[in-house]
Simulated assay, not measured.
Amino acid sequence: MRIGVVCPYAWDIPGGVQNHVRDLAEHMIRLGHEVSVLAPADDEATLPAYVTHAGRAVPVPYNGSVARVNFGFLSAARVRRWLHDGAFDVLHVHEPSSPSLSMLACWAGSGPIVATFHTANPRSRAMTVAYPILQPTLEKISARIAVSEYARRTLVEHLGGDAVVIPNGVDVGFYERAEPKAEWQTQPGEGGTLAFIGRINESRKGLATLLEAFPEIAAARPGVRLLVLGGGDMEEAAAFLPDSVRGQVEFLGRLSDTDKARLLSSVDVYVAPNLGGESFGIILVEAMSAGAPVLASDLDAFELVLEGGTVGRTFPVGDAHALAKDAIELLGDTVERERLSQAASLAVRRYDWSVVAADLLAVYEMVTTKSESVPRTGGVEALSAGEALES
């Protein structure tokens, strides 16, 4: 099958949607399908062979974060050319409700279109206001996918219709096989090792809550360490910490996927103190796959992944004292950590790409079968409406 996939966000900036699209493409290629991804990027040289460069991205505030997207007349021309050259059996776009390559591809596409919605925001005024503009785009979509029940609810409440829930995929085996790194493991005399992964300066990731809780954790667990992985202003983040514990927090910057997996396999507890805007929680699944017990804020999306607290522990969103209390308990209880690790290792199986890709292929086959002549995606005339809207 010839599959075209559109990634709306900058390929060379780490993010959940980008990682999902990358893993999807590479898994489908391993299964023998022809896959081409269209994505913006600041550095074209970083793109793998299966990605077509759609130009540089520009930052746009979106869902409590800053999305780097590509939109405009030149982008529309690139989309049209990619669709024409690809002659795809199915087009799979991600987040078509935002002004991006995905929306342009929906305007331009003339064959079966599958759309995945990642956003979870029950009070999105932007989506409500944009509904009249989005309606023609939504009508062209052959099948809708939401990455979680929470994302499905957002879609239904704001845009109508419905979607099948297919979660983000994870290469579970990749994380299971990761070798711990001695320097990241708890050493004799230390009080344990915690980890956080996320963009440091993005407030909704909740690092400030974890740093607020850390002195209380350190007082109860002398020698405890916190390892922080992610890009951003490390000095600004460290300003939250009193001098007495600053040396126990190590900012690692950005690491390769291999080192990220090794980090997760090395630590005693992975902490996800996110404040909101999460539709799924892929990092939780990655940590669980690597064997790290998870302590996360009780966001709806996280509660779903952690099965109501049975395969991980949750605390009230933004409550630094509750975070500290749970972290102290987990660091002091090896039996409970092992129980959570074992329970999580079973729970993550349904997120493995072997399962997720099979569900996606079933959707692809459904939409192509429903198309009478399996029309190819693209065509010069298909973009006229999109070009008119952009002018």
Rank of each mutant, 00 (worst) to 15 (best):
S98V: 15
A130Y: 02
T137N: 08
V165G: 00
E157R: 15
L155Q: 08
V165C: 01
T137P: 06
T137L: 14
A108W: 05
L138Q: 06
E149F: 01
P99V: 01
I133R: 03
V156I: 12
A143L: 04
Y150H: 09
V147S: 02
V147Q: 00
A126V: 14
A146M: 02
Y131T: 14
A130K: 00
V156D: 04
R125E: 13
L104N: 06
S124D: 12
N121A: 14
A130V: 02
A151W: 06
Y150T: 13
G160I: 03
G160C: 04
V164Q: 10
S97G: 08
W107P: 08
A126I: 13
I145Q: 02
G109E: 03
A151Y: 11
R144A: 04
P132I: 00
I145A: 03
G111C: 01
A115R: 07
R152L: 13
F117Q: 14
E139D: 15
R153M: 12
S98N: 12
R153V: 06
K140Q: 12
R153Q: 15
V164I: 08
T116I: 11
A126H: 13
P132H: 01
P122S: 07
N121T: 09
S102Q: 07
P136D: 14
S98F: 11
R144L: 03
S142A: 14
R152D: 11
R123Y: 14
L155M: 12
L134S: 07
Y131H: 15
A143R: 15
P132E: 05
H158I: 01
V164G: 02
S102T: 09
A151N: 10
S142W: 08
E139K: 14
A130D: 03
E95G: 03
G160T: 06
E149L: 02
T116Y: 10
G109M: 01
I133A: 10
R144W: 09
R123M: 12
T119L: 13
S142C: 09
P112Y: 08
L134F: 07
S102F: 04
P112C: 03
H158W: 06
Y150N: 08
